[in-house]
Amino acid sequence: MAADATLVVQQPAAPARIARKLWQFRRWPLIPMFFLVLFVFTGIFAPLIAPHDPERGGLRDRNLPPAWEAGGSSEFLLGTDHLGRDMLSRVIFGARISLAVAGVTLGVGMVIGVASGLIAGWYGGWLDEFLMRIVDIKLAIPTILLALVLVLALGQSFLIIVAILAIAVWPRFARNVRGEVLQLKTMDFVALAKVAGASTPRILFIHIFPGVINTLIVLATLEVGIVILLESTLSFLGAGVPPPTPAWGSMVSDGRDRLAVAWWISTMPGLAIMLVVLSMNLFGDWLRDRLDPRLRQLN
């Protein structure tokens, strides 16, 4: 009987429990999930799926309309751009850029954000004050403007774009993780771990971090859309991953002055951006309602 009389301690959510919870979820948002899977899949396997080389085209094939319009051919399903490059292939390869940028950015931003959030929340004091003021300042500077200035000074490359976007992304993670840590560190299981002699890193990673995972997952899904929009905006303004790499934003920009002759050049990549961001938002909303309804105030 002694075994039954264990202390009742509030437990942080363990990954295994999250997995079980996920499995029990009803009403999965199937359509958004379909598009997200499609996005990830095309991004990864772009060279295998794309019917043409996205960076080469023949001038004889330029400005061909999509297959369903008069004058379109089944060889170029979504038509061709002003240099005769296949739109479909370019949209497919564009998924790759967006996926890579969003993935790496979120990875880096999350690591920095979580680390500083954990430290600020756990240690408090001047360290907390210092980190949170940096977050405040970052949030008070218009992101795109900052990004443009940095790109101009440092040059255009995949790594620089990712670094800039990671700078834009980390503060929100830091702030939310800190808030969670402030709550978690007053809980019994943390006090008990301390009494049991656990080291600070151990408490932070084994006891506190699992409690933050829900928030992280939700925030990350909501941030993906923001990152993709930011990246495409930079590309549109000519400050993204440099051409001829097909990025969705710069493709929309290519078609800007050709709306009257070839509307599809701008329309198709924009639709792709909207579809991905929309799906991500719907999926993120759904996840948030299931995992962490408190984050709803975030919006």
């Binding site: 859309g225 929009l229 495409s232 905006t233 549109f236 934003g249 929309v252 920009s253 078609g255 800007r256 709306l259 509307w263 701008s266 329309t267 924009g270 951006i273 909207m274 961001v277 929309l278 938002n281 719907l282």
Partner: peptide, 18 residues
């Protein structure tokens, strides 16, 4: 709301022009 939060601003503008 969904269109406003998902469509890139620059693209939305171009589509309106179109």
């Amino acid at each position: 709301a969904l269109v406003g939060q998902s469509a890139p601003v620059f693209w939305l503008g171009l589509m309106l022009v179109f």
